[in-house]
Structure formats: structure tokens, C-alpha cells
Design a protein around this nucleic acid. Structure first.
Lengths: 343, 343
DNA sequence: GTGAAAGCGCTAACAC
DNA sequence: GTGTTAGCGCTTTCAC
């Protein structure tokens, strides 16, 4: 830590050292073809010698070409669902030689606005955007106005009118309910999530349609909104239990909530699955680790990430078509959390 | 997606629009004092009007000042321990207005080298570095030679001679063994991790010293190395079970391995905790969710992240002192996975 | 308080 | 194949 910030070696110095012009050095470094093998060697030798480090910022400023960074905005890192998504995105992006600038909103619109600004100031090549609940179009428009490609993930913005990748929430919600009905449940609640989210609408719509298809009534009091956290699961399941006629099963907005609910059930001396059927959504690693193992609807976060990067990359490469949507089909993962005692 | 990349608004245009010089506009935007309130207002109005977006890259190129990005190199995102670490780092960095460039090595030295290069090319202000097992000093030196501050996390490099934050692995390992001994265990294995890691040495050293302090022999065949994954846990516990005289308890290098081991135990019809005592290391969220709840040594990933950012920030601000180390004391979290049937 | 001019490290024209 | 020149968008002297 003793040395002062040493002056950085510039391309000019490399060129001088190699006895060529700066242009030649630049071309050599970037592996352009029209450079003789001999000069290329010389330039590389000088680079090594002087300890040259390429300055992407400067290059980028001059070339106005696609920068090599991509902005990623997600709500939260403590939910494994987002982590899985991040892994998918990250892997794919690395393969393309792009680096990730990461921002987490914690589902706050204010933070989201700030993050968008920062990311924009970094002149990213594109943005993968998991919007905050109830987000207005404005942040999205700001990005689009600058001509920066965006792909929206999982939560769509009405009239967002841009590339989107997510899962079929309606089908997911519906298949969960169908499973519960097959298991003999007749009174089923929907727990957690907030109505500002397109994904919430999809999942509840599937829930309702599953109920109706089975000839069951929809009881509005059985749909309870709440944050997407473990703690929320505790609270929500207690509310449900306190109802005059509690349901025999609950479908949760996501696995985090489902696990929170199951933990509270255990705490109350009840057995999840036996005393109360539970289905989650996402299939995070915890789902298969918890006891009882959680029946859930898989939403393939890694694959979503992969698709998002592909769509974005095509845009960055200049694709100019109508907005595209990739909607993955969810899959019901049947495990142990749904066999009620009385059924 | 229809519009072509629109020409970006520059500071010059803002200045012209506001009827001031570019210098004045620049000073106004950065909130320097020697600008009258009236001009400041004018400039900001013009910014809004024209939809100006500050270009950090350009600013940075000219000023050679601290860039506003920090590089973060971690092994893997699928282990919640790293996620927690990332959360801690991220939160703290956001508060300082720094953005994160993220790289994951998957414990590969090759990937690590490539990542270091990329991050360096982005002219980061500093790097938080979780080195790969068996990493040589070379990547670290490359960074240091450029005068870029680094703080090492959890895994120290012998002679790294730079800022470091981690936990006291020796004490952690030792307290785990002491707990196991108190529970009546006399034959205890150490599972997983690789000997290229300073943290592995610390934990095994603690393990050995705990054994010796209790007057027990150290059986080298009970220390088995292995990758830090769930799958590795499966494999390792089977190896242990196949021994002529299996131990009654195992201390695992980390929680991931411990959980993998417990899952395999269940699969084999054995009850973790009852048939085999298990202690983990890290205290990831899964540890308290698994059944039986895992007794483990907490290593406070978020706090490590926070400390790392603080150390790094001070260096970025110009602190020029001898390398500093922050070593956090781990804490034994006693839960349910250690009461053997015969003890 | 404010302005004019120079230049950070690089690439893109265009010449040769 | 290689060199010359100009300039990306900003901050920084240094005048006034």
C-alpha cells in the first residue's frame, strides 16, 4: 500500500516502445486483421513489458460503439429466486464478454429511479430490468429514449412495449389449484404478493380459473395480499387460521412465503401438509430441503435469465423488430406438502 | 425499438441552452460552491429540458479521479454464504454511491485471471477479492502494481500483504469440536474443503486443537477433503460411513456440505443428529430451515461484507498505512443436529 | 462567479 | 500494412 498511484501506461507509450504508430498498436491489440504477424508480436511484447492495461472507458468514449457492460436491476438478493436468475444472466453474459453492473431495488420505486440513473450514466449497452411493483413507465421511457435496449423480466409493464421474458403465471396458478383439488381440497386460499404486480394478477387469475373449472366458489376473503418475505408468510398464515372457516389448503405467491407459512405452522404445533395443504411458486432450492418437501410450481429462473440475455444481446447487435415476448411454461413439482388429514 | 440510437445530449449543449459556458455548467452540475444560485437553476432547468445524462466515463477519463465503480470477485452465487456477503457489500457500497461490477470465478484460476483483467480495464476504484483456492500472488500483484486498492476476503494469500477481512477459523473450528465433545462424541471427522485454502487450514487447525484439548487422538483418516458443494456432502458422508470404525459425528467445512451430508443420511434411512452428529460452518438461512435444524458456526457474511467495503473505501480515499486485518469472532449456534443416540 | 483553451486515452477517417 | 490528424464528453488550469 506504500506506492503512490503510478502513472498508467498508455497505448501511445506502448506504440513508441514497439516502434510503431499508435494506430498500428491499437489495431494490433484489438486483433484486427490488417496487421502483419511481426508487428503484432512486437506490440504484444511491449505491452507485456510495460504492463499496459487497456482502457475500455476511453475506447468506448471515442468509438461510441457498444460498451461492454450491461445493467441488471433486480429487487432483492436474499430471495434465492433472484440469485438463480442472476446466475443464469451472469453466466450467459460472461460468455458474451459483457460485465454486469448490478443494482438491487428492494422493491422501492425511489431506489429504482436512482439505480436507473446511475446505470445510464455508465453508458451500458443494455439493461435487464425487473421492475418494482406499481412502477410507472417513466423509468423505462427514460432508458428507451436514449436508445438503450431493455428487456423486462417476469413483471411486465402494461404498455411497456418492449422485449419481455417471464413465465406463464396463469397456467402455473391454475395447475397448482388443480393439483390441490385432485388432492381433495375444496376451500383454498391464495396468500401473499401484491396486486400491483403483473405476476400477481397472472397467478391469481390462474387460481380463480382453476377454482371455477372445478366448480368451486371464489371467496374473495381467501385472497390475501402481503409482502414477498418469510415474515409475511408467518403473518398471512395466522390470518388465514383466524378466519371463521379456514381453508384446508393455501397456494402461496412464492416459495419464500410458503416456507414462512410452514415454519409458523410448525411453531403452532401444526403439521404442514397434514393439517394444511401448501403449494408454493418458484421451486427455489429450499423447497426441496424443507420438511415436508414443498410442492411448488417451478418458474425456471436460470432459464429466464438465459433467455433475457439472448434477447438483449440481439437488440444490442442492432436487431430492430417489434417487441418480442418469451413466455416459459411452468411445471408443477409434486412433493409432500399437500396431503390433508381429512381428505 | 424503432428509433435509431439518438445522439446523446452533451454538457456543451446544456451550457449553450442555459446561456453559460461549459465550465460553469460542469461546476453547477457537480454542485460546486462557487456558482450563483441563479445560474445553477438555469443549468438544471436546461438539463431537464434536454434530457441530459451525465457521462461518468468521460468525466473519469479526464479527471483521473476515483472512478465510481468497485470490482467484486467471488467464487459462486449458488452458495447463500456468498449471496449474503454480496448483500452486505452491495448495501454498503450503494450508500457510498459506488456501483458494483460483479465477477464469479467458480473457483477456477483461469476464470479468475480473466476477471481480474476485465475489471482492471474498467478502471475500478478498488477491488474486493475472494481468491480461488491455491491462487498464486500474481493476479493480486497485477492489481497492486496499478495502485488499485484491494481487500481480500475470508481466504488470505500468504504474504498477500494487503488488507484482509475474515473470521477466526481456528476458534470457530475449535468451538465446534468442543461442543461435540460436550455432547459426548469421542470420534469426530472433518469433512470437505480443500487444503489450498487458508480457511481450511484455520478450521482444521481448530478442529485438531479441540480434539487434543479434550485428550482425544487425531486420526488423519477422518479428515477428508472435498469440494464445497451439496453433492460433495453426499459423497463424503458415504465415505465416512464406509470406514471400518465410522465416527459418531462430523464437523463440515461449511453448511452446504453439512446439508448435503444430512440429506444423504436421510436417504439412507438414518437420522441426522441422532445417528450421526453434524456441525456446519457459516449459518446460511437453510441451516435453520432444515430438519433437524443444523448446529453451526456463524461466520457473519454480511458483516464481513460491510467491513470489507469500509476498509476498501478508506484506501480509495487515500489512506496509506500498513495492511490491516479485521478478524471477526465466529459464534456457535446450537440447534438440533448433534445429539447422538448412544451418548 | 464565470469563460477559453487544452487534453485525458483511445479510435476512426483518410492518406500513403 | 502503416502513419497522420481530429475529436469522443468531460474536467482542469488559468485568466478575467
Amino acid at each position: 500500500m506504500k506506492q503512490e498511484k503510478p502513472k498508467l501506461v498508455t497505448l501511445q507509450e506502448v506504440a513508441k516502445h514497439a516502434g510503431v504508430s499508435q494506430t498500428t498498436a491499437s489495431l494490433a491489440i484489438r486483433g484486427k486483421l490488417n496487421i502483419s504477424e511481426a508487428t503484432r508480436q512486437k506490440v504484444f511484447a511491449s505491452m507485456q513489458n510495460l504492463g499496459y492495461v487497456y482502457d475500455r472507458g476511453a475506447a468506448n468514449l471515442r468509438s461510441k460503439g457498444a460498451s461492454s457492460t450491461v445493467g441488471l436491476i433486480i429487487p432483492d438478493l436474499s430471495n434465492p429466486f433472484y440469485t438463480e436468475l442472476l446466475i443464469g444472466i451472469h453466466q450467459e453474459l460472461n460468455q458474451l464478454g459483457q460485465t454486469v453492473i448490478l443494482g438491487t431495488t428492494f422493491d422501492s420505486a425511489t431506489v429504482q429511479d436512482r439505480l436507473v440513473s446511475t446505470i445510464l450514466e455508465h453508458r451500458v449497452a443494455g439493461i435487464i430490468f425487473f421492475v418494482v411493483p406499481g412502477s410507472r413507465r417513466e423509468p423505462l421511457d427514460r432508458i428507451r429514449r436514449l436508445g438503450i435496449p431493455v428487456v423486462l423480466i417476469n413483471r411486465n409493464l402494461s404498455e411497456g412495449h418492449c422485449d419481455y421474458v417471464g413465465i406463464d403465471n396463469v397456467t402455473g396458478g391454475r395447475s397448482a389449484v388443480e393439483h390441490l383439488v385432485r388432492k381433495g381440497h375444496r376451500r383454498i386460499a391464495f396468500l401473499g404478493g401484491v396486486s400491483q404486480l403483473s405476476s400477481w394478477h397472472g397467478r391469481t387469475e390462474g387460481y380463480v380459473s382453476g377454482l371455477l373449472a372445478a366448480g368451486l366458489d371464489v371467496d374473495e376473503s381467501l385472497i390475501i395480499e402481503g409482502p414477498m418475505t418469510r415474515e409475511s408468510g408467518h403473518v398471512l398464515i395466522e390470518k388465514i387460521l383466524a378466519l371463521p372457516t379456514p381453508p384446508t389448503a393455501v397456494l402461496c405467491y412464492n416459495d419464500i412465503i410458503a416456507i414462512g407459512a410452514m415454519m409458523k405452522l410448525k411453531e403452532l404445533g401444526l403439521t404442514p401438509g397434514y393439517d394444511m395443504g401448501i403449494v408454493g411458486f418458484d421451486d427455489i432450492p429450499e423447497a426441496s430441503i424443507f420438511s415436508p418437501r414443498l410442492t411448488t410450481v417451478s418458474s425456471f429462473p436460470r432459464r429466464i435469465g438465459t433467455h433475457a440475455v439472448r434477447l438483449l444481446h440481439e437488440r444490442i447487435e442492432g436487431l430492430d423488430s417489434e417487441p418480442r415476448s418469451v413466455v416459459l411454461q411452468p411445471e408443477l413439482i409434486v412433493r409432500e406438502s399437500c396431503s390433508h388429514k381429512n381428505l
